[in-house]
Design a protein around this nucleic acid. Structure first.
Length: 310
DNA sequence: AAGACGAAAGTGGTTGA
DNA sequence: TCAACAACTTTCGTCTT
């Protein structure tokens, strides 16, 4: 679907002040700074749910800062001088009070953002994340700050949580371990803030697909492309056999890779696979066993063994 | 000796009363 | 709010290559 013109309202704030940049293929909401990439609108269902689940209700509730409009992290002031002419004298006091308030809030937020976004960039480049993901996570973080979700939590952990969420949404999942290593925040803590932030912001994230991990794991194990595509094949049939639901995606991905490595005669130890996938050998064994039970891969493994002897 | 296997106990999170 | 529960981990002993 190439046409985006049916999008009339910003899925984030419901504003209608959308700016179409056809050259870049982007839509930008002038109200909240949301950049709606073509790809995202097309592929991810989250936006739709986001939209239909009455985000407007949620988004407008609460603190006055909700009405603060940020232009990619740059605060705006309440009104401009021109607006003063329209106000009666009694409203002027109110006006100034509001503006002072707004100023205080926005400078505090800006200070926070400045630090946080620097940290975010650092972690993101460490993990070599695509730009889209970086921007998405910056957006998530900005929303989190505006909603006061950072209070009582360390800035870094919220940054890590935002990054994790953005990765998931863009189908370029990193494991919690990787995030943890890059940010220096404990795995538990990242998971906690991740869950908190996504819940509070009403961000829906589908369980990540094991297939998304294959390419990365395979390349760090230096497996041949055929092995990789075999692993994906295995995963697909596993999904058909309902073997994947409820299981940790990394464990399944790891097991599929392990099996396909066996089949293609590129044997890796369970330890090796477990390490790159960030799971334990036990988990791989369990998944591996399930895969063997459900799909008849044993023949193929035996075939490979025979072929080796000859 | 290293790797694979599996049992048992522990962990942190979700769910449902 | 608490207990049952599922998935996963850690640890450890045994079997296989």
């Amino acid at each position: 679907m190439m046409q985006q013109h049916y999008v009339k309202k910003c899925p984030e704030c419901g504003g209608i002040n959308l700016f179409y940049n056809t050259e870049k293929g982007e839509i930008i909401c002038r109200d909240c700074g949301l950049v709606v990439e073509e790809k995202m609108v097309d592929t991810s269902q989250e936006w739709r749910e986001f939209d239909s689940e009455g985000s407007e209700k949620r988004r407008r509730a609460g603190a006055p800062s909700t009405y603060t409009q940020y232009d990619q992290g740059l605060g705006t002031e309440v009104g401009q001088k021109a607006d003063l002419f329209k106000l009666g004298t009694k409203n002027k006091n109110k006006f100034f009070r509001l503006r002072k308030w707004q100023y205080r809030i926005s400078t505090a937020i800006e200070r926070n953002l400045k630090l946080a976004l620097a940290e975010l960039k650092r972690v993101s480049s460490y993990l070599k994340l695509p730009k889209q993901v970086e921007e998405e996570s910056a957006r998530i973080y900005t929303l989190a700050v505006q909603r006061g979700l950072v209070r009582g939590r360390s800035m870094e952990s919220v940054v890590a949580g935002s990054l994790y969420a953005a990765c998931r949404r863009h189908d370029v999942p990193r494991t919690l371990d990787e995030l943890s290593e890059a940010s220096g925040i404990e795995k538990k803590e990242i998971g906690r803030t991740y869950r908190f932030v996504t819940r509070e912001l009403g961000i829906k994230i589908l369980p990540s697909n094991p297939v998304d991990y294959i390419a990365r794991f395979a390349s760090s194990l230096r497996l041949k492309p055929e092995t990789q595509s075999k692993a994906i094949e295995i995963l697909e049939s596993a999904q058909r056999g309902e073997l994947t639901s409820g299981r940790g995606p990394t464990g399944i991905a790891a097991a599929a890779l392990y099996v396909s490595a066996l089949i293609h005669g590129e044997k890796r130890t369970q330890r090796e696979v477990a390490d790159v996938a960030g799971v334990t050998e036990v988990t791989i064994r369990n998944r591996y066993k399930e895969l063997l039970d459900e799909l008849d891969l044993e023949k193929e493994i035996k075939k490979q063994k025979k072929g080796k002897k000859e």
